[in-house]
Design a protein around this nucleic acid. Structure first.
Lengths: 214, 214
DNA sequence: CCTACCGATCGGTAGG
DNA sequence: CCTACCGATCGGTAGG
């Protein structure tokens, strides 16, 4: 009966943090993503974790602390993975790699992504400030690649930079609504996504043929 | 002191519904959009409307009924306005008109749009079914114009239709996060948006020059 | 639309 | 991590 707890305790010794705490955060991530922060009660989380509601407070200070941790580490994940994809020199290829990376992070845990994208509103003003700083850094990755592309001529120069970033990030973030959890983003999806973003919907056959030839 | 109520009562006579009910829905729209459905209490709404919590139930059956009304009429608005823009014959121009129309509906009431996009999750299964039907009809408008464009050659033929629709609608829906309420969508924003969606971010100078000449 | 109220649930705590 | 509990707030109702 207590086997799950025993396994947890074993893992517990190996790492620094309590494994129950890790489980709590995982469960909270799922529920905050599915039902939203105000729609999830401490009791909901406790029940799934398998402890009594009050016992949660042996591992966390309060409910908002869990939200902050999920949102903050969630953005960090995007910054790490997409940041690593933004080293590529050629802006066009860099943007493609960033799109694929962003989609892979969302697909790895869409519920976490949903919390990152929507539940930060329920943080206190002070905590929202922390989060906003990270979000701005993330947006900068995309702004930079578009600027670099405009400079070297591989990306469009005449477009409205702000709108371009909003369209790209908007369509990427919306993927959390339809990407199935755990599905490795297959080449097809990322490729199709990049095609729409990079080349748009309008037929531009001459440009493509020209590019293909040389 | 009771002047607001008197004015409401006067308006009340002119239309069918109670004006208090209309005010309630407006307030609920704002709060559901800003704080989410579970994060908004009946008491929050009542306080702003200026009546006591229990008095709300003279005008509605329950809290979810308000949500359903807001979501349902919200989607109807998109269907009407964007549907009217989808009569244009040329697919490229039609899509541009639809993008502009969608953005204008969001800008007219971003909070309502937020409720439409995110709060439908809190409806009962039965009510979600109603909503999903309308959402599908809305997505069909966009799928159709992309298909029509592929057929007549003005839009790209090789792209993944599903992904294309998701990218377009994703970026459009995300606009509710950044569009300021009441701002008429200026030509610049809608034009820039259409440019990114239609032509993409990749420089395609040859195609553009070719199109301009012919 | 108010008065007066209901049972249920909420986030959180003291003490072990 | 449990026992036992707190005050506050929740959606909603009967009767006027």
């Amino acid at each position: 009966m207590a086997d799950r707890r025993e396994v947890n305790d074993a893992l517990n010794a190996e790492r620094g943090g309590s494994s129950t705490r890790v489980t709590m955060i995982e469960v909270a991530t799922r529920l905050f993503g599915e039902r939203g922060y105000p729609g999830t009660s401490i009791r909901d989380i406790a029940e799934i974790v398998g402890i009594l509601p009050g016992s949660l407070y042996a591992h966390i200070g309060n409910k908002e602390e869990m939200l902050l941790e999920i949102v903050s580490s969630g953005i960090d994940r995007f910054l790490e993975v997409v940041g690593a994809s933004s080293r590529e020199a050629d802006p066009r290829e860099r943007l493609k790699a960033m799109i694929r990376a962003h989609l892979s992070v969302v697909a790895a845990n869409p519920q976490s992504a949903q919390v990152v994208f929507h539940q930060w509103r329920y943080l206190s003003e002070a905590n929202q400030l922390l989060v906003r700083k990270k979000r701005r850094a993330y947006e900068r990755l995309f702004r930079d690649v578009i600027i670099d592309g405009a400079v070297d001529g591989t990306l469009e120069t005449e477009l409205d930079l702000r709108i371009a970033v909003l369209v790209v990030l908007g369509s990427l973030n919306w993927s959390a609504e339809w990407l199935v959890a755990g599905s490795n983003v297959d080449d097809g999806t990322a490729e199709a996504f990049s095609n729409v973003i990079l080349d748009g919907l309008a037929a531009a056959k001459f440009a493509k043929e020209t590019r293909r030839r040389g």
